[in-house]
Design a binder for these strands. Structure first.
Lengths: 203, 203, 203, 203
DNA sequence: GATGAATGAGGGTTCATTCAT
DNA sequence: TATGAATGAACCCTCATTCAT
């Protein structure tokens, strides 16, 4: 029992810091956020952050890893529930992408805005979890190509990128607009329609 | 004559700074670039930058404005040459998007990576030129919807965003990969195929 | 019995900390040594140190006091064994100074390097034990002056300082050199020769 | 003219910082001196220090180099003036050692207290100028050994160390005592007597 | 007593911006 | 205009010390 509680207490503080960082980064961006602001947001002392993370960069990377992992788990769990063919799965994937964003606006802001910067400038970090996330979509597309649902003349890797980009940009726009939407089903439906029809095999 | 030469000389120095900033931002990102590095790259003194720009933020914004304007001019000029219907124009738009990126790799890196950050964190700046650029695409789509080429059930504003996102993400990927591609026609073709087929009206 | 054991246990832990501090200070110097490193070296928790010492300064001072006392006891015990006149005693004093250093290299590094700093910057501490150590030498010199062995035109306090300085500097040099000497009798002999001949009364 | 003035202005600021650092280090020691205190003492902004020195360590090292060089020049110039044999020169060397200390009390405090620490803990710095300073003494001793004035059974390197140690320790004591002496000829004479008689060849 | 996670004041260093030349 | 030395506010991170367990 004791070890479990200790583990939990530790995890709690680490998680509080990650969450504080997420809020802060979403609000002001990585480079405009002071470590002390993260500490404030998390309700810990500045120094405490350095008990759990090597430095500010490491905190950013850890936040990506942690949240992407959570997203991947959620998406994969939901996709398993889907009854229907590949198209239904892809549609659901897109729907979930938007839905998670609406449920977690700070996370959405953080990922849409910071992912690119960090991909490029945090040295020697290639964000494997993001690759995993894209991999889910890539596999769905390949499934569709194999079962004849999707056209075969498109490279699955390239297309998964393009689809992600489309979703991400639309989300960015929603995210940045002053009034945060509580419902994005319209947007989700339209973007799905565009992309799925683009993917569909023609006779 | 004299005024013109002076104007030109001025313009030359201003342009050298903008170009220096572009190179520097592309290489290291806005937040990791020192003003002195921009000055080095431009071959001017640090202080000179402040004769032409209010501050570092203003330099970033001016760079966006200037380069986006240039891109818009190029795209609009090229689109006027296009013979053929809306589909041909949209295809050409996408092609040009990639082509300009290949011809101006620093510019491509700069825009794909920095546009989002700056959109969000440079205070009170809503990047009107970027709106203009998207506007071109939006108008093409609306033309297509009016002449029956494109489906009418999609919001042109939303779709133009999605299309831009798809192009941009694919470009980012190309841009970040170690070996810079000299030819991206394959990628351009595939992404066009996906998106244009998604846009097409069905009978 | 129990109290004695407790006392001993206490003493053991206190001594472990002092020894850990000695090793650490010798290796990296007072200002470059973290309290946590001392704790590591001593095999105790960081907080434990504060049960035995008021703070890091106090630990330094206590270490001086303790080790100087031990040195003084050793020297005095050995000097009592010396058969022969003042000259023999002074020679033995110098010999012992080097010998103790060779036997306790960490202690030698610590004292040669840290004594001066601490003498000056640890507030309100005038290092009485060091005075005691010098006092032994001073008294030997005065004995020699009274019994006619040593010249009387020199101030014993000043000379004891000078002699200590000579020994200390030579030791510092030996201590800092890469290969730690296991035998320093040559150095001891030469320095003795120089200083004792300098002290000797002339007819 | 202009270049010379510029050079001088530059030199002036660098020198002001060195002098400020010297005062500050003498007063509180290297590790207890904040960079901002040095800046205050020098009458410059904190950042200015980093235009002239890489970091705080570099400032310390530069200060050693610069001041030791000055001392060496002074000593060598004075020794050239000495009429008389080796003994007179060694006596003068010792006298100058004390005299320079009295004339430059901050410098004396700095060198007596900080030299050892820095010798050991500033990484990869072996203080060549200090070697030069000792070299002067070593050469004088060797001269004396060759012309028969000094005994030949002592290693000149070792003895020069011992002599320096004796001088340095006596100086430290004078330096640390509350009332700064304006005249140290007594001390100089006594220490000279001790050491020179120790060095002298016997018939 | 013993622990070590948590604290938060403090300091070295950076760098956008200024201004005397 | 152009320069670049100088500025000093800002910030990341360290580490001596505390205290709940």
């Amino acid at each position: 029992m004791e070890t479990k509680e200790e583990k939990k207490a530790q995890g709690d503080k680490r998680e509080k810091i990650l969450q504080g960082a997420l809020e802060a980064f979403a609000k002001k961006g990585f480079y405009n956020t002071k470590v002390s602001e993260i500490a404030d947001e998390a309700g810990v002392a500045d120094g405490t952050i350095y008990l759990y993370f090597k430095n500010k960069d490491d905190l950013l990377i850890s936040l990506f890893e942690d949240r992407m992992e959570w997203i991947i788990d959620r998406i994969e769990a939901e996709l398993e529930q889907v009854e229907g063919g590949t198209i239904e799965k892809v549609r659901r994937y897109m729907e979930l992408h938007f839905q998670l964003a609406v449920e977690n606006p700070a996370l959405a802001e953080f990922i849409t805005v910071e992912l690119r910067q960090s991909a490029k400038f945090i040295k020697e970090y290639d964000n494997p979890k993001f690759g995993d996330y894209l991999g889910i979509l890539k596999r769905l597309i390949e499934e569709g190509q194999q079962d004849g649902t999707f056209r075969e003349d498109l490279d699955s890797r390239l297309v998964s990128r393009a689809v992600f980009g489309a979703l991400d940009e639309v989300l960015l726009q929603l995210t940045l607009s002053a009034e945060k939407p509580s419902d994005v089903s319209l947007e989700a439906t339209q973007v799905s329609a565009l992309l799925i029809d683009g993917l569909r095999a023609r006779e």
